[in-house]
Write a protein that binds this DNA or RNA. Structure first.
Lengths: 204, 204
DNA sequence: GTCTATAGGAGGATAGAC
DNA sequence: GTCTATCCTCCTATAGAC
Protein backbone atom coordinates (compact mmCIF):
# COMPACT_ATOMS: atom_id res chain seq x y z
CA UNK A 1 0.00 0.00 0.00
CA UNK A 2 2.76 2.31 0.84
CA UNK A 3 4.32 1.72 -2.54
CA UNK A 4 1.04 2.09 -4.46
CA UNK A 5 -0.02 5.37 -2.90
CA UNK A 6 3.20 7.19 -2.19
CA UNK A 7 1.83 10.72 -2.34
CA UNK A 8 -1.08 10.09 0.00
CA UNK A 9 1.11 8.34 2.53
CA UNK A 10 3.66 11.07 2.24
CA UNK A 11 0.98 13.65 2.88
CA UNK A 12 -0.24 11.87 5.96
CA UNK A 13 3.30 11.48 7.17
CA UNK A 14 3.87 15.17 6.63
CA UNK A 15 0.82 16.04 8.67
CA UNK A 16 2.00 13.84 11.51
CA UNK A 17 5.45 15.28 11.32
CA UNK A 18 4.05 18.80 11.38
CA UNK A 19 1.99 17.98 14.46
CA UNK A 20 4.96 16.50 16.21
CA UNK A 21 6.93 19.60 15.36
CA UNK A 22 4.21 21.75 16.88
CA UNK A 23 4.22 19.65 20.04
CA UNK A 24 7.98 19.85 20.38
CA UNK A 25 8.00 23.56 19.71
CA UNK A 26 5.36 24.20 22.35
CA UNK A 27 7.13 21.95 24.84
CA UNK A 28 10.36 23.75 24.09
CA UNK A 29 8.80 27.11 24.86
CA UNK A 30 7.21 25.91 28.08
CA UNK A 31 10.43 24.24 29.16
CA UNK A 32 12.19 27.54 28.66
CA UNK A 33 9.50 29.40 30.58
CA UNK A 34 8.88 27.13 33.53
CA UNK A 35 11.32 24.25 33.57
CA UNK A 36 10.62 20.52 33.38
CA UNK A 37 8.89 19.98 36.71
CA UNK A 38 6.55 22.95 36.46
CA UNK A 39 5.53 22.19 32.91
CA UNK A 40 2.48 19.91 32.69
CA UNK A 41 1.54 17.63 29.83
CA UNK A 42 -2.03 18.96 29.99
CA UNK A 43 -0.62 22.41 29.38
CA UNK A 44 1.41 21.34 26.37
CA UNK A 45 -1.53 19.49 24.85
CA UNK A 46 -3.93 22.38 25.46
CA UNK A 47 -1.47 24.87 24.00
CA UNK A 48 -1.04 22.75 20.87
CA UNK A 49 -4.80 22.25 20.71
CA UNK A 50 -4.93 18.46 20.95
CA UNK A 51 -6.02 15.99 23.61
CA UNK A 52 -3.48 14.74 26.08
CA UNK A 53 -4.02 11.15 24.94
CA UNK A 54 -3.11 12.19 21.41
CA UNK A 55 0.13 13.65 22.62
CA UNK A 56 0.92 10.38 24.31
CA UNK A 57 0.62 8.64 20.92
CA UNK A 58 3.60 10.71 19.81
CA UNK A 59 5.66 10.63 23.00
CA UNK A 60 5.44 7.81 25.49
CA UNK A 61 6.18 9.97 28.52
CA UNK A 62 6.73 13.52 29.68
CA UNK A 63 10.44 12.82 29.84
CA UNK A 64 10.48 11.55 26.27
CA UNK A 65 8.82 14.77 25.21
CA UNK A 66 11.33 16.93 27.06
CA UNK A 67 14.18 14.85 25.70
CA UNK A 68 12.85 15.33 22.18
CA UNK A 69 12.86 19.08 22.73
CA UNK A 70 16.46 18.95 23.91
CA UNK A 71 17.46 16.79 20.95
CA UNK A 72 15.80 19.26 18.65
CA UNK A 73 17.69 22.25 19.95
CA UNK A 74 20.93 20.31 19.88
CA UNK A 75 20.37 19.42 16.23
CA UNK A 76 19.58 23.04 15.55
CA UNK A 77 22.89 24.04 17.08
CA UNK A 78 24.70 21.42 15.04
CA UNK A 79 23.20 22.71 11.81
CA UNK A 80 23.94 26.28 12.76
CA UNK A 81 27.57 25.53 13.53
CA UNK A 82 28.04 23.43 10.42
CA UNK A 83 26.73 26.15 8.15
CA UNK A 84 28.50 29.02 9.86
CA UNK A 85 30.61 30.96 7.34
CA UNK A 86 34.35 30.92 8.07
CA UNK A 87 35.74 33.63 10.33
CA UNK A 88 38.56 34.08 12.76
CA UNK A 89 38.07 31.60 15.66
CA UNK A 90 37.32 34.31 18.20
CA UNK A 91 34.65 35.77 15.91
CA UNK A 92 33.10 32.33 15.50
CA UNK A 93 32.79 32.05 19.26
CA UNK A 94 31.26 35.48 19.52
CA UNK A 95 28.80 34.72 16.74
CA UNK A 96 27.72 31.49 18.38
CA UNK A 97 27.33 33.12 21.77
CA UNK A 98 25.18 35.86 20.28
CA UNK A 99 23.02 33.32 18.46
CA UNK A 100 22.51 31.46 21.72
CA UNK A 101 21.44 34.61 23.53
CA UNK A 102 19.04 35.51 20.73
CA UNK A 103 17.51 32.06 20.89
CA UNK A 104 17.05 32.36 24.63
CA UNK A 105 15.49 35.82 24.41
CA UNK A 106 13.01 34.45 21.89
CA UNK A 107 12.02 31.74 24.36
CA UNK A 108 13.29 28.96 22.13
CA UNK A 109 15.99 27.67 24.42
CA UNK A 110 14.70 24.86 26.66
CA UNK A 111 16.98 24.94 29.66
CA UNK A 112 18.37 21.59 30.67
CA UNK A 113 17.67 21.37 34.40
CA UNK A 114 20.89 20.44 36.17
CA UNK A 115 18.48 18.89 38.65
CA UNK A 116 16.33 16.14 37.13
CA UNK A 117 18.49 13.05 37.07
CA UNK A 118 16.15 10.75 35.15
CA UNK A 119 15.81 13.23 32.29
CA UNK A 120 19.56 13.64 32.31
CA UNK A 121 19.98 9.87 32.12
CA UNK A 122 17.62 9.71 29.16
CA UNK A 123 19.61 12.34 27.31
CA UNK A 124 22.95 10.71 28.06
CA UNK A 125 21.51 7.45 26.71
CA UNK A 126 20.20 9.13 23.56
CA UNK A 127 22.78 8.69 20.79
CA UNK A 128 21.36 11.53 18.68
CA UNK A 129 21.65 13.96 21.57
CA UNK A 130 25.08 12.77 22.64
CA UNK A 131 26.45 12.79 19.10
CA UNK A 132 25.13 16.31 18.75
CA UNK A 133 26.66 17.40 22.02
CA UNK A 134 30.02 15.91 21.09
CA UNK A 135 29.88 17.44 17.63
CA UNK A 136 29.05 20.87 19.02
CA UNK A 137 31.70 20.58 21.71
CA UNK A 138 34.30 19.51 19.14
CA UNK A 139 33.61 22.43 16.86
CA UNK A 140 33.58 24.96 19.70
CA UNK A 141 36.62 23.28 21.22
CA UNK A 142 38.57 23.62 18.01
CA UNK A 143 37.81 27.32 17.80
CA UNK A 144 38.66 27.81 21.45
CA UNK A 145 42.03 26.11 21.03
CA UNK A 146 42.76 28.04 17.88
CA UNK A 147 41.96 31.27 19.70
CA UNK A 148 44.13 30.19 22.60
CA UNK A 149 47.01 29.48 20.23
CA UNK A 150 46.75 33.05 19.00
CA UNK A 151 46.76 34.31 22.58
CA UNK A 152 43.23 35.67 22.28
CA UNK A 153 41.75 33.81 25.25
CA UNK A 154 42.08 34.72 28.91
CA UNK A 155 45.14 32.67 29.89
CA UNK A 156 43.70 31.90 33.32
CA UNK A 157 41.05 29.71 31.70
CA UNK A 158 41.50 26.17 30.38
CA UNK A 159 39.55 25.37 27.21
CA UNK A 160 36.96 23.39 29.13
CA UNK A 161 36.12 26.39 31.32
CA UNK A 162 35.66 28.54 28.24
CA UNK A 163 33.41 25.90 26.69
CA UNK A 164 31.22 25.60 29.78
CA UNK A 165 31.02 29.36 30.14
CA UNK A 166 29.71 29.57 26.59
CA UNK A 167 27.21 26.77 27.24
CA UNK A 168 26.03 28.59 30.34
CA UNK A 169 24.86 31.52 28.19
CA UNK A 170 21.94 29.26 27.22
CA UNK A 171 20.51 29.62 30.74
CA UNK A 172 21.82 33.01 31.76
CA UNK A 173 19.20 34.73 33.95
CA UNK A 174 20.73 38.16 33.36
CA UNK A 175 18.80 38.39 30.10
CA UNK A 176 15.45 38.07 31.85
CA UNK A 177 16.51 40.31 34.72
CA UNK A 178 17.46 43.10 32.33
CA UNK A 179 14.34 42.60 30.27
CA UNK A 180 12.18 42.85 33.40
CA UNK A 181 13.91 46.12 34.23
CA UNK A 182 12.44 47.52 31.03
CA UNK A 183 15.26 50.01 30.60
CA UNK A 184 16.85 48.37 27.54
CA UNK A 185 15.69 46.71 24.34
CA UNK A 186 16.67 43.19 23.36
CA UNK A 187 19.57 44.27 21.17
CA UNK A 188 21.10 46.33 23.96
CA UNK A 189 20.61 43.50 26.44
CA UNK A 190 22.43 41.06 24.18
CA UNK A 191 25.26 43.54 23.63
CA UNK A 192 25.68 43.97 27.37
CA UNK A 193 25.70 40.26 28.12
CA UNK A 194 28.10 39.68 25.24
CA UNK A 195 30.44 42.33 26.60
CA UNK A 196 30.37 41.04 30.17
CA UNK A 197 30.99 37.54 28.83
CA UNK A 198 33.97 38.31 26.60
CA UNK A 199 35.39 41.53 28.08
CA UNK A 200 34.41 40.90 31.71
CA UNK A 201 33.05 43.22 34.38
CA UNK A 202 36.39 44.96 34.91
CA UNK A 203 37.64 47.76 32.68
CA UNK A 204 40.48 47.00 30.26
CA UNK B 1 4.06 31.76 83.57
CA UNK B 2 6.40 33.23 81.07
CA UNK B 3 7.55 35.79 83.59
CA UNK B 4 7.88 33.32 86.46
CA UNK B 5 9.94 30.77 84.58
CA UNK B 6 12.02 32.79 82.17
CA UNK B 7 14.90 30.33 81.82
CA UNK B 8 12.68 27.35 81.06
CA UNK B 9 10.65 29.22 78.51
CA UNK B 10 13.81 30.56 76.98
CA UNK B 11 15.16 27.06 76.76
CA UNK B 12 12.06 25.77 75.06
CA UNK B 13 12.11 28.70 72.69
CA UNK B 14 15.72 27.98 71.91
CA UNK B 15 14.90 24.36 71.12
CA UNK B 16 12.14 25.42 68.79
CA UNK B 17 14.35 27.97 67.16
CA UNK B 18 17.07 25.38 66.69
CA UNK B 19 14.63 22.99 65.07
CA UNK B 20 13.34 25.67 62.78
CA UNK B 21 16.91 26.46 61.86
CA UNK B 22 17.52 22.82 61.04
CA UNK B 23 14.42 22.71 58.87
CA UNK B 24 15.39 25.84 56.99
CA UNK B 25 18.94 24.65 56.53
CA UNK B 26 17.78 21.32 55.12
CA UNK B 27 15.26 23.00 52.88
CA UNK B 28 17.95 25.36 51.70
CA UNK B 29 20.22 22.50 50.72
CA UNK B 30 17.47 20.61 48.92
CA UNK B 31 16.37 23.76 47.13
CA UNK B 32 19.91 24.21 45.92
CA UNK B 33 20.12 20.59 44.81
CA UNK B 34 16.77 20.03 43.13
CA UNK B 35 14.82 23.23 42.92
CA UNK B 36 11.45 24.11 44.41
CA UNK B 37 9.20 21.83 42.37
CA UNK B 38 11.34 18.72 42.72
CA UNK B 39 11.83 19.15 46.45
CA UNK B 40 9.15 17.41 48.52
CA UNK B 41 8.08 18.27 52.03
CA UNK B 42 8.32 14.58 52.99
CA UNK B 43 11.95 14.69 51.99
CA UNK B 44 12.69 17.76 54.08
CA UNK B 45 10.93 16.32 57.12
CA UNK B 46 12.65 12.95 56.77
CA UNK B 47 16.03 14.58 56.33
CA UNK B 48 15.51 16.68 59.46
CA UNK B 49 14.20 13.64 61.29
CA UNK B 50 10.72 14.87 62.18
CA UNK B 51 7.22 14.06 60.99
CA UNK B 52 5.80 16.04 58.14
CA UNK B 53 2.92 17.27 60.29
CA UNK B 54 5.44 18.70 62.73
CA UNK B 55 7.07 20.64 59.96
CA UNK B 56 3.70 22.10 59.07
CA UNK B 57 3.45 23.46 62.61
CA UNK B 58 6.46 25.63 61.81
CA UNK B 59 5.65 26.55 58.23
CA UNK B 60 2.11 26.73 56.93
CA UNK B 61 2.99 25.68 53.38
CA UNK B 62 5.78 24.46 51.18
CA UNK B 63 6.03 27.92 49.70
CA UNK B 64 6.35 29.47 53.14
CA UNK B 65 9.19 27.11 53.85
CA UNK B 66 10.99 27.95 50.62
CA UNK B 67 10.42 31.64 51.21
CA UNK B 68 11.91 31.30 54.69
CA UNK B 69 14.99 29.73 53.16
CA UNK B 70 15.31 32.60 50.71
CA UNK B 71 14.82 35.15 53.48
CA UNK B 72 17.51 33.40 55.48
CA UNK B 73 20.11 33.56 52.73
CA UNK B 74 19.23 37.16 52.05
CA UNK B 75 19.75 38.04 55.71
CA UNK B 76 23.01 36.17 55.61
CA UNK B 77 24.13 38.26 52.67
CA UNK B 78 23.08 41.43 54.48
CA UNK B 79 25.10 40.53 57.53
CA UNK B 80 28.07 39.55 55.41
CA UNK B 81 28.03 42.82 53.50
CA UNK B 82 27.51 44.90 56.62
CA UNK B 83 30.50 43.34 58.37
CA UNK B 84 32.79 43.32 55.37
CA UNK B 85 36.05 45.16 56.19
CA UNK B 86 36.67 48.30 54.11
CA UNK B 87 38.51 47.84 50.83
CA UNK B 88 38.65 49.49 47.45
CA UNK B 89 35.21 49.18 45.79
CA UNK B 90 36.40 46.77 43.11
CA UNK B 91 37.91 44.53 45.77
CA UNK B 92 34.66 44.57 47.70
CA UNK B 93 32.83 43.35 44.61
CA UNK B 94 35.37 40.60 44.03
CA UNK B 95 35.18 39.51 47.66
CA UNK B 96 31.41 39.32 47.55
CA UNK B 97 31.40 37.40 44.28
CA UNK B 98 33.87 34.89 45.67
CA UNK B 99 31.81 34.48 48.83
CA UNK B 100 28.72 33.80 46.70
CA UNK B 101 30.52 31.15 44.67
CA UNK B 102 31.82 29.48 47.82
CA UNK B 103 28.31 29.40 49.25
CA UNK B 104 27.00 27.83 46.08
CA UNK B 105 29.74 25.21 45.93
CA UNK B 106 28.91 24.25 49.51
CA UNK B 107 25.30 23.70 48.51
CA UNK B 108 24.04 26.49 50.73
CA UNK B 109 22.67 28.72 48.01
CA UNK B 110 18.98 28.05 47.36
CA UNK B 111 18.46 29.18 43.80
CA UNK B 112 15.49 31.43 43.32
CA UNK B 113 13.59 29.84 40.44
CA UNK B 114 12.87 32.49 37.87
CA UNK B 115 9.94 30.23 37.10
CA UNK B 116 7.59 29.77 40.05
CA UNK B 117 5.40 32.84 40.07
CA UNK B 118 3.54 32.20 43.32
CA UNK B 119 6.78 31.80 45.26
CA UNK B 120 8.08 34.93 43.63
CA UNK B 121 4.93 36.77 44.64
CA UNK B 122 5.37 35.60 48.23
CA UNK B 123 8.93 36.91 48.30
CA UNK B 124 8.00 40.24 46.77
CA UNK B 125 5.31 40.59 49.42
CA UNK B 126 7.72 39.70 52.23
CA UNK B 127 9.08 42.93 53.75
CA UNK B 128 12.06 41.20 55.36
CA UNK B 129 13.14 39.72 52.05
CA UNK B 130 12.52 42.87 50.08
CA UNK B 131 14.28 45.08 52.62
CA UNK B 132 17.20 42.71 52.47
CA UNK B 133 17.24 42.71 48.70
CA UNK B 134 17.15 46.48 48.59
CA UNK B 135 19.84 46.76 51.24
CA UNK B 136 22.12 44.34 49.39
CA UNK B 137 21.47 46.04 46.08
CA UNK B 138 22.19 49.45 47.59
CA UNK B 139 25.50 48.36 49.06
CA UNK B 140 26.60 46.59 45.89
CA UNK B 141 25.29 49.48 43.81
CA UNK B 142 27.35 51.99 45.76
CA UNK B 143 30.51 49.98 45.22
CA UNK B 144 29.71 49.52 41.54
CA UNK B 145 29.24 53.25 41.05
CA UNK B 146 32.39 54.04 42.99
CA UNK B 147 34.32 51.62 40.81
CA UNK B 148 32.75 53.13 37.71
CA UNK B 149 33.80 56.60 38.85
CA UNK B 150 37.38 55.35 39.03
CA UNK B 151 37.08 53.88 35.53
CA UNK B 152 37.50 50.35 36.82
CA UNK B 153 34.30 48.93 35.33
CA UNK B 154 33.76 47.83 31.74
CA UNK B 155 32.33 51.05 30.24
CA UNK B 156 29.94 49.09 28.02
CA UNK B 157 27.97 48.05 31.10
CA UNK B 158 25.47 50.15 33.06
CA UNK B 159 25.51 49.62 36.81
CA UNK B 160 22.35 47.55 36.72
CA UNK B 161 23.92 45.06 34.30
CA UNK B 162 26.92 44.71 36.59
CA UNK B 163 24.63 44.14 39.57
CA UNK B 164 22.58 41.47 37.81
CA UNK B 165 25.72 39.75 36.54
CA UNK B 166 26.97 39.51 40.11
CA UNK B 167 23.59 38.19 41.32
CA UNK B 168 23.69 35.58 38.56
CA UNK B 169 26.82 34.04 40.08
CA UNK B 170 24.48 32.59 42.72
CA UNK B 171 23.04 30.22 40.12
CA UNK B 172 25.96 29.79 37.75
CA UNK B 173 25.93 26.23 36.39
CA UNK B 174 29.60 26.46 35.35
CA UNK B 175 30.60 25.56 38.91
CA UNK B 176 28.77 22.23 38.78
CA UNK B 177 29.88 21.52 35.22
CA UNK B 178 33.52 21.97 36.16
CA UNK B 179 33.12 19.98 39.35
CA UNK B 180 31.55 17.10 37.40
CA UNK B 181 34.54 17.16 35.08
CA UNK B 182 36.66 16.25 38.08
CA UNK B 183 39.77 17.90 36.64
CA UNK B 184 39.92 20.77 39.14
CA UNK B 185 39.41 21.26 42.84
CA UNK B 186 36.96 23.72 44.31
CA UNK B 187 39.52 26.50 44.78
CA UNK B 188 40.62 26.30 41.15
CA UNK B 189 37.02 26.24 39.97
CA UNK B 190 36.23 29.38 41.89
CA UNK B 191 39.34 31.11 40.57
CA UNK B 192 38.34 30.29 37.02
CA UNK B 193 34.78 31.50 37.37
CA UNK B 194 36.03 34.65 39.11
CA UNK B 195 38.42 35.33 36.26
CA UNK B 196 35.85 34.74 33.53
CA UNK B 197 33.44 36.99 35.43
CA UNK B 198 35.77 39.96 35.98
CA UNK B 199 38.38 39.57 33.23
CA UNK B 200 36.14 37.94 30.61
CA UNK B 201 36.77 35.13 28.16
CA UNK B 202 38.94 37.25 25.89
CA UNK B 203 42.63 37.95 26.57
CA UNK B 204 43.66 41.36 27.81
C1' DG C 1 4.31 20.39 69.17
C1' DT C 2 4.92 15.74 67.92
C1' DC C 3 3.21 11.84 66.07
C1' DT C 4 0.14 8.39 62.75
C1' DA C 5 -3.18 8.23 59.52
C1' DT C 6 -5.73 10.18 55.98
C1' DA C 7 -8.13 13.54 53.23
C1' DG C 8 -7.87 16.08 48.90
C1' DG C 9 -6.15 17.26 44.55
C1' DA C 10 -3.00 17.68 40.83
C1' DG C 11 -0.96 15.54 37.16
C1' DG C 12 1.11 11.53 34.49
C1' DA C 13 -0.56 7.86 31.98
C1' DT C 14 -4.16 4.65 29.88
C1' DA C 15 -8.78 2.39 28.20
C1' DG C 16 -11.76 2.10 24.77
C1' DA C 17 -14.97 4.18 21.38
C1' DC C 18 -14.64 6.25 16.86
C1' DG D 1 -4.46 8.80 15.74
C1' DT D 2 -7.81 11.47 17.98
C1' DC D 3 -11.00 11.95 21.28
C1' DT D 4 -13.51 11.57 26.29
C1' DA D 5 -13.40 9.64 30.48
C1' DT D 6 -10.93 7.49 33.93
C1' DC D 7 -7.25 5.37 36.68
C1' DC D 8 -3.60 5.71 39.88
C1' DT D 9 0.26 7.50 42.03
C1' DC D 10 2.52 11.02 44.37
C1' DC D 11 2.48 15.00 47.17
C1' DT D 12 0.54 18.88 49.80
C1' DA D 13 -1.95 19.63 53.67
C1' DT D 14 -4.83 18.43 57.78
C1' DA D 15 -7.37 15.68 61.56
C1' DG D 16 -7.05 13.99 65.85
C1' DA D 17 -4.82 11.32 69.58
C1' DC D 18 -1.06 12.01 72.89
Amino acid sequence: MTSTLPTKVSFKTQMLQAREDAIIQTASRLLAEKGFEAMTVDEVAASVGIAKASLYKHFSSKEDLAAAAMVRVMQRAQTYLRDLPPQAPMDQLRTVARWTLELKLRGEMPSLPSQNSTLRAKLVADPVYMDGLIDVSDRLGAWIEAAQAKGLINPALPAIAVLYTLYARACDPVLEFLRMGGQHDDAQIIDMVMSSCFEGLGAR
